[in-house]
Design a protein around this nucleic acid. Sequence first.
DNA 1: CTGAAAGCGCTTACAG
DNA 2: CTGAAAGCGCTTACAG
Lengths: 334, 334
Amino acid sequence: MKNITISDVAERAKVSRSTVSQYLNQRYDYMGEKTKLRIEEVIEELGYQPNIVARSLKQKSTKTIGVIVANILHNFSTEVSRSIEDVCNDYDFHTIICNADDEPKKEKRYIEMLRAKQVDGLIIFPTGGNKDLYQKMIDENYPVVFVDRSVDGIPISSIMLDNEKASTLAIDHFASSGYKRIGIVTTSILQSVTPRVERVEGYRKAMEAHGLQVNEDYIKSVNIGEIQEALSEMATLPNPPDAILAGNDLALIEILKFVKKHKLKMPTDIAVIGIDDVSFASFYSPTITTIAQPTFKMGKKAAEVLLSKIQKEESKDDGPDYRFEPELVCRDSV
Amino acid sequence: MKNITISDVAERAKVSRSTVSQYLNQRYDYMGEKTKLRIEEVIEELGYQPNIVARSLKQKSTKTIGVIVANILHNFSTEVSRSIEDVCNDYDFHTIICNADDEPKKEKRYIEMLRAKQVDGLIIFPTGGNKDLYQKMIDENYPVVFVDRSVDGIPISSIMLDNEKASTLAIDHFASSGYKRIGIVTTSILQSVTPRVERVEGYRKAMEAHGLQVNEDYIKSVNIGEIQEALSEMATLPNPPDAILAGNDLALIEILKFVKKHKLKMPTDIAVIGIDDVSFASFYSPTITTIAQPTFKMGKKAAEVLLSKIQKEESKDDGPDYRFEPELVCRDSV
DNA sequence: CTGAAAGCGCTTACAG
DNA sequence: CTGAAAGCGCTTACAG
């Protein structure tokens, strides 16, 4: 199956390839009306579709961006990606989504692959483990924006939740419902991933603001596989917490499993709030009070910031971060 | 920022571009050891990365495939896509995922865009609404495979669940637990989407096999927004069903919402089985009995079939469909 | 063992 | 108003 190229169209329409190209790029300014119509006809007739790869090579733009999420298992990643795609679509950009699986090595491989593929820019939920690469992109003035996390010493704008506020909303709500022994469970904080660190920090501050005691035994930042154990430890404390804030959706699920396994009742035995508005929150029993992230807005912003960097050539920025407001969704688990 | 090209490498290594290209393509056969080392060094030194767009243009292969899912909201779509990506990754192929949103128009746009981008093949969860395009791809011997659904008169292999078996497993399980008034609720069947049609068909056959009466009022195939109403209708029948099979994950969620809203108890007031093993099935209250699709295997198969079509040039096949076995996951909602 | 030349399918000044 | 020419960054016979 020989592919139809611009030459075939030109030949058939009895014009030069340049003229066809002008037509394709809608530069009709100086084109004879009959020429235009003739080309249009031939294209229709041949079912010609321009080869975008060839165009990209010449134009040095692929109209494609790459998105590298740290871990696709978080609902947040999926929703933000979806929103990024929507916006890109509106601007006729394609999106290639990759999942680094929390491994800096994979992230590195994807960054290199995507750049070799000449994507016009990158949206990264950074693992944090490739500072040299991040810095190299800055030095080369290559368009990048971060999402969810920032990286120390790397001045790339990041689209993030106001994480401290998220914790504050939760603690305020617990407190106003009379809970005092409030714990927090989140996935490991060892790589100092921004949202986790800030949420724990926000938790501490909010507790203090309410004059509540911060008990270190009530704070668990461990790998997802160790959460059950951490919860058991908390539960067997002489004075166990009566409310728990889940630092993200995966932590929440672990908590719900624990609650179920031990036949606890929410909110009487234990009150729960989850950061991230999981899909089943509204029909779980009881329905789950959550702190929702504006994932749609955040994805939109990420795409817009990146696209504008791409357009401007001038992708320099002082790396201002964009913070988004969390929202308390009251339901029955508190 | 001038990009580093093969010419820069050639110049610096004092060889021709051809030789560098040979090196890049690992055709070392006739290359002097010193040449090889020199090139290697220079590449390292310059941080050179070959431009894949240029390579693709010449090689007429982008090492990229497109995936167009009918509706990304189904958990099935996400999981299968993920598995496709994993396999493609192993073969050094990239994946571009698009969501047709159940709209044939969007599907058409994506097919055309992806082909213009010269993707080497397409995996489609077909909406069914673009038969001319599907046929055109067959005529052009362009590599395509379908997933989840087949399209009447279009001999393209499809990777599908054994849908009748899925319903059979559910009905058998209901029946063996003593339920007799069994209903089925699924999203609209109007466009004769394969799995929906087959699941309803399987339901009928299985009911008959058990000597159970098929009550047409127990069969609801309506748009997602109308499921609540359909359930109300069923519930107010003089003799309402005491068990319901959810045709897919979205239908299941509607049922769970209904159950919650009307404070019904599962399985005492109503027993439920869902086709698709949703994420929360194992910790919902009660845990939910489901029929799981082997999404991972199905995605793997789809990728493998497509990749082999791509490799063979000869992408013709007689369109044999591949059927996968559903699995009953017994939990507490029956 | 390595290089000169042609070509992939476009686009973009530039000339007329 | 339209065409000839050069070029994007690679690869691939082919010659030597």
